[in-house]
């Protein structure tokens, strides 16, 4: 609970800062034009700062002749978001690769016969993968929209990319709202076990057991909890900004759309970067974790190593609880 509060506070403090970042980028660009001497320059400069003119076209901002903010937004997208986003995602992948090479997978001592514990119910697994599938559809189509011109045009040529980009945009817009539903279901289902509990901090201090010492954890460790709240935070930002962008025909003004896009892009890049870590730890990073999310069952030895304070609801091996004729109560 405390952690949730901290995160939310952090979020609220950082959110208003983001437009400044964008604005500082745009100031640089605007200042390029100031050394001109042409007498008509002042007129056009005024036009560029948004002086209203007349247009026969209706709709919000139709009378704005030159939208300088649009150019600034474009510069942000091409010069800041795209390159720095790729650096960040690349750095995360690189770090993971180095870590894997040095540390290797975390292994638990498997005992025979394998006692299995139910970690995730059918519904919990379905909701997880529902969100995951949609996340990746959106991440891939989103990345195509942002990086396609750098990566795909050289590969497939521009006419092929036009098709891909159009398709990606439609898919992105279509699956986005479903992702919001998935996110909602996910948060409702998983929130219960993700609030801060005593001992979480010491788990963090011990580096989640990665530093040699065993770190105690309940059903979810502090790292998983942080991921959960990040999913909620980033997911919320992406959802709201996404809805604005998806329904741009609902008469939002340009600045709103630009702000929505900036937030959407930053949150998405962060979301994808962190998800690499989640995927690594859930698959090759720790042995025996993935099966919890596929079959629902984990080995007892796995649970003792990673989640020693977790007690599953039914506490029994699936086989033992399901022997025909076993007493029901």
């Amino acid at each position: 609970m405390i952690w949730a509060g901290v995160l939310l506070l952090l979020g609220t403090f950082t959110l208003p800062v983001l437009p400044y970042l964008w604005a500082s980028a745009s100031n640089d660009i605007a200042s390029l034009d100031t050394v001109q001497n042409n007498p008509r320059a002042n007129f056009w400069r005024n036009v560029r700062t948004g002086t209203a003119g007349y247009s026969a076209v209706g709709g919000p901002e139709a009378n704005v002749l030159i939208n300088n903010d649009g150019q600034n937004w474009r510069q942000f997208r091409m010069r800041l978001l795209a390159p720095y986003g790729s650096y960040l995602m690349g750095a995360v992948l690189f770090t993971i690769a180095i870590f894997y090479a040095l540390r290797g997978p975390v292994q638990h001592l498997s005992n025979e016969p394998k006692e299995l514990l139910l970690r995730f119910s059918v519904y919990q697994r379905v909701v997880h993968w529902f969100t995951a599938i949609l996340f990746w559809i959106l991440a891939l189509t989103g990345l195509i929209l942002l990086y396609g011109r750098f990566v795909l045009i050289p590969l497939f040529g521009s006419s092929g990319f036009a098709l891909t980009a159009s398709a990606s945009k439609e898919a992105h817009n279509l699956f986005g709202p479903i992702f919001i539903v998935a996110l909602f279901l996910l948060v409702i289902e998983y929130a219960r076990d993700n609030f801060y509990r005593k001992g979480d901090l010491s788990w963090l201090i011990k580096g989640g057991g990665m530093l040699g010492k065993h770190a105690s954890a309940g059903r979810f460790n502090f790292g998983e909890k942080i991921w959960f709240w990040l999913v909620l935070l980033l997911g919320t930002i992406i959802s709201f900004s996404g809805i604005i962008l998806d329904f741009a025909n609902l008469n939002f003004d340009r600045n709103t759309l630009e702000l929505a896009h900036v937030l959407h892009g930053i949150a998405a890049i962060l979301f994808i970067s962190v998800s690499f870590g989640h995927i690594y730890l859930g698959t090759i990073g720790t042995k025996g974790t993935l099966r919890g999310m596929t079959t629902g069952y984990v080995e007892q030895a796995w649970a003792e190593l990673h989640h020693d304070k977790w007690r599953p609801d039914d506490g029994a091996t699936p086989e033992a609880s399901r022997v025909p004729g076993a007493p029901n109560e």
């Binding site: 059918v122 379905v126 949609l134 279509l174 539903v181 629902g296």
Partner: peptide, 22 residues
């Protein structure tokens, strides 16, 4: 759009249940 989203959500959920439920 609404129909498509409902249909897609249903299809993905049903398929996931198919692979998840014993």
């Amino acid at each position: 759009i609404l129909s498509a989203e409902i249909a897609f959500a249903g299809l993905i959920l049903l398929w996931l249940r198919r692979v998840m439920h014993p």
